[in-house]
Amino acid sequence: MSRTPADLLRASRDALATVRTSAPLVQCITNSVVVNTTANALLALGAAPAMVDIPEEAGGFAAAASGLLVNLGTPGAEHRAAMRAAVAGATDAGTPWVLDPVAVGTLPVRTELAATLCAAGPDVVRGNASEILAVAGAGTGGRGVDATDDAESAAATAAALARRTGGVVAVSGPVDVITDGRDTVRVRNGHPHLTRMTGGGCALGAVIAAFAATGPDRLASTVAAVLTYTVAAELAADHANGPGSFAPAFLDALSTVDGAALESRAVLA
C-alpha cells in the first residue's frame, strides 16, 4: 500500500474502527507492575485482554488468540517459560505477536531472553530507543526502563533490525519512529504525562498487538496503534491537571477516540 501520510491516516481510521467492531482477543504475558493498566487500556479500546501466562496454557492460547504481547518487564522463571511456549504457539498458528524488550542491555537474563525471542521473528518489536539499540546489538541499554538515547538516533538501527526480523520496529519517544526496514514513519503526537504513568509504554505494546489483528500490513497497523494511543494521550491531557488525573482521563480518551480525532490531530511524516 501507499505510505503517504494521508493513506496511513486513512488506514489508521479503518483499523481503529475494526478494533472497535471485532474486539480482538489479546493474550498478554506482561510484567506484574502493569497488568491492570494494560488490561484496562485494551478494554477501553474495545479489545479483550487475556493474561494467560502459565506455561502449560500459554502456547495453546496463543494459537487461538487474535494477538500476543510478550513483555519482559518482570521475567520470572515461569514467565520466561510461558513466553517461549506462547511464541511457539503463535508462530505455528500465524498469530501476530509483539515483543517489548523492557530494560534489556543492562540486565543479563532479560537481554539473553530478548535475543532468543527476537530470533523467532516477532511481528513487531516495540521499545524505547535504548532498548531497541540493545536488542539490535548496537547499544548497552538505558537507565533501567528509562531511555538514555532518543528515537531518531535509533532510526537506522531500527530499520536494520526490522529487516533482520522480517517485521516492524516501533521506537517510542517524544517523536515515535516506526519502520519495516523499507519505509519509516514518524508520529509526532503524544504527551509527556504518558511517561509519568505506570504502564504508559507497556500498555502500548498490547494495543499494537490488538491492531495487528486488523490486517496483514504490519507497518500500517502499528502506525494506527501508535497514532490512536498518542492522540488519546493528547485528548486526556486536555482534561488533566497532572499525572494523577491523567491516568483515568487517558482510559476515558481511549474509549472515545475516533477517526475524526485522528483526522484533526494526526501529525505523520
Results as ranks from 00 to 15, higher is better:
Met1Trp: 12
Met1His: 13
Arg3Phe: 07
Thr4Tyr: 00
Leu9Trp: 11
Ala11Gly: 15
Thr18Phe: 00
Arg20Met: 05
Thr21Ala: 14
Pro24His: 09
Leu25Phe: 11
Val26Glu: 11
Gln27Ile: 01
Ile29Tyr: 00
Asn31Phe: 04
Val34Thr: 15
Val34Pro: 04
Thr37Val: 15
Thr38Gln: 07
Leu42Thr: 02
Ala44Val: 09
Leu45Thr: 13
Gly46Cys: 01
Gly46Leu: 14
Ala47Val: 09
Ala50Met: 00
Ala50Phe: 03
Val52His: 05
Ile54Asp: 15
Glu56Gln: 14
Phe61Thr: 14
Ala63Cys: 08
Ala65Lys: 02
Ser66Val: 03
Ser66Gln: 05
Leu69Phe: 10
Asn71Met: 02
Gly73Ile: 00
Gly73Ala: 03
Thr74Ala: 08
Pro75Cys: 08
Gly76Ser: 04
Arg80Asp: 01
Ala85Val: 02
Ala86Phe: 05
Ala88Val: 14
Ala88Pro: 08
Asp92Glu: 15
Ala93Ser: 03
Gly94Arg: 12
Thr95Val: 05
Ala103Gly: 06
Ala103Pro: 05
Val104Glu: 02
Gly105Asp: 00
Leu107Cys: 01
Val109Glu: 11
Ala115Lys: 06
Cys118Gly: 11
Ala120Arg: 14
Asp123Glu: 07
Asp123Thr: 14
Arg126Gly: 02
Gly127Ala: 09
Asn128Cys: 10
Asn128Glu: 08
Ala129Gly: 12
Ser130Val: 07
Ala136Pro: 13
Gly137Glu: 08
Ala138Ile: 11
Gly139Glu: 06
Gly139Ser: 04
Thr140Lys: 09
Arg143Lys: 12
Gly144Ala: 11
Val145Met: 13
Glu152Leu: 10
Ala156Tyr: 02
Thr157Met: 13
Ala158Leu: 02
Ala160Ser: 14
Arg163Phe: 06
Arg164His: 11
Arg164Asp: 13
Thr165Val: 13
Thr165Tyr: 02
Gly167His: 00
Ala170Ile: 07
Ala170Thr: 09
Asp176Ile: 03
Val177Phe: 01
Val177Ile: 15
Gly181Phe: 07
Thr184Tyr: 00
Val185His: 01
Val187Pro: 08
Arg188Asn: 12
Pro192Tyr: 05
Leu194Val: 13
Thr195Ser: 15
Thr195Val: 06
Gly199Trp: 14
Gly199Met: 06
Gly201Arg: 04
Gly201Asp: 07
Cys202Ile: 08
Ala203Ile: 07
Leu204Tyr: 07
Gly205Leu: 09
Ala206His: 01
Ile208Glu: 06
Ile208His: 01
Phe211Leu: 03
Arg218Thr: 10
Ser221Phe: 04
Val223Lys: 06
Ala225Lys: 15
Leu227Ala: 13
Tyr229Val: 03
Glu234Ile: 04
Ala236Asn: 10
Ala236Gly: 09
Asp238Asn: 12
Asn241Ser: 15
Ser245Trp: 00
Phe246Cys: 06
Phe250Gln: 05
Leu251Ala: 04
Leu251His: 15
Asp252Lys: 06
Ala253Lys: 06
Leu254Phe: 07
Asp258Lys: 09
Ala260Glu: 14
Ala260Thr: 15
Glu263Cys: 12
Ser264Met: 06
Val267Met: 10
